[in-house]
């Protein structure tokens, strides 16, 4: 029996690449547009500002990409990020422990909260939207309680601000003062892309979103792997918490709400399907850059804050609509 499917396969892959090219092209067009529209746009300080802004949202978006590929959603990433920053503040400033302990505590706390969300979703069958909505509120409240609603400053830990604002690359190549936050974003993205495409965890992440029942019937411990995904995503939120706390040199307990929607927007613009089963880290990174370039560019062109928000909303809808149109055609 000859069943040849190569030709169809080629069509598929090209359409997947096509989609990323489309997002990438939009990013380039935006960059060109804003540099022509404003001479301030390409200045080093502005570029670094964009990179700084992308590092936080980008890391969060990478984490939430994993959850979305399983067919779930994580609304708690914003307040979880803040919670991990507060934990770092407690360990470093209140307890006066060395820097490394603060880093481990923040990432560990993130992973632990992710583990709880994952357990709620996988073992207790609470819908992801509800489980993480609950976690979002719980973490917001807990951050305020622990910190006594006041910011925690990291003045006793001199190296802390270097996590985000220092530049290892700049020390080696003085003409490239890329902040460490961005370096961390690319390290996190590379590691997660490796996990997603090369390891069993990644394979099962796609399998869960594609057909969870089929994976279960094939003998995959779907609950276990789902909890792993949420835990990993939570740990990544811890990284984001360290970056933002380092940049502000403080843990701001009231911050965080709203970050989850920016992260989900970046994921969606990057072409990951909210229905699960499909998505990529590269797409998410491009999506995160599109978001921050857009906001920065509008700000530099003195577009009022309210209008920036409206444009962002329109871009999200447009990106997903373009993806739907493309998908229906294939």
């Amino acid at each position: 029996m000859t069943m040849i499917v190569q030709s169809e396969v080629k069509k598929r892959t090209s359409s997947g690449v096509h989609q990323k090219l489309l997002a990438f092209a939009s990013l380039i067009i935006m960059l060109v547009f804003f540099s022509l529209a404003s001479s301030n746009f390409l200045q080093t300080s502005n570029i670094i500002g964009i990179l700084q802004a992308t590092s936080v949202n980008g890391v969060l978006a990478v984490g939430v990409t994993l959850v979305i590929i399983t067919g779930g959603i994580d609304l708690s990433v914003g307040t979880l990020m803040t919670f991990t920053a507060v934990i770092a503040g407690v360990v470093l400033t209140y307890l006066g422990m060395p820097l490394l302990f603060g880093i481990v505590a923040a990432i560990g706390a993130g992973a632990f909260c992710g583990f709880i969300s994952g357990t709620l979703v996988a073992r207790m069958k609470v819908p992801p939207f509800i489980a993480t909505l609950g976690m979002m509120l719980i973490l917001k409240g807990t951050s305020l309680v622990i910190s006594g609603t006041k910011p925690i400053y990291f003045n006793n830990t001199p190296g802390f601000s270097q996590i985000s604002t220092g530049s290892l690359i700049g020390q080696v190549f003085p003409f490239l003062p890329i902040p460490n936050g961005v370096l961390i974003l690319f390290v996190v993205a590379t590691v997660v892309a490796f996990i997603l495409n090369r390891t069993a965890l990644g394979r099962y992440t796609f399998a869960l979103g594609s057909n969870e029942e089929a994976a279960r019937l094939s003998g995959v411990d779907t609950d276990f792997w789902k909890i792993c995904v949420y835990s990993l995503s939570g740990g990544i939120c811890g990284v984001a918490g360290l970056i933002i706390a380092s940049r502000l040199n403080s843990a701001q307990p009231a911050l965080g709400l709203g970050y989850e929607l920016d992260a989900i927007a970046a994921v969606v613009i990057g072409g990951t399907s909210l229905a699960g089963g499909r998505g990529s880290i590269l797409g998410t990174i491009i999506g995160a850059f599109i978001m921050s370039v857009l906001l920065n560019g509008l700000r530099i062109m003195s577009v009022a804050q309210e209008w920036q928000t409206i444009v962002t909303g329109l871009i999200i809808i447009l990106a997903v609509y373009a993806d739907m149109v493309r998908r229906q055609r294939t």
Binding site: R203, F206, A207, G209, S210, N211, E213, A214, A215, L217, S218, G277, R278
Partner: peptide
């Protein structure tokens, strides 16, 4: 009971 988004071998 197959996963549509994965390849045949996967």
């Amino acid at each position: 009971a197959l996963m549509n988004d994965l390849t045949v071998a996967q």
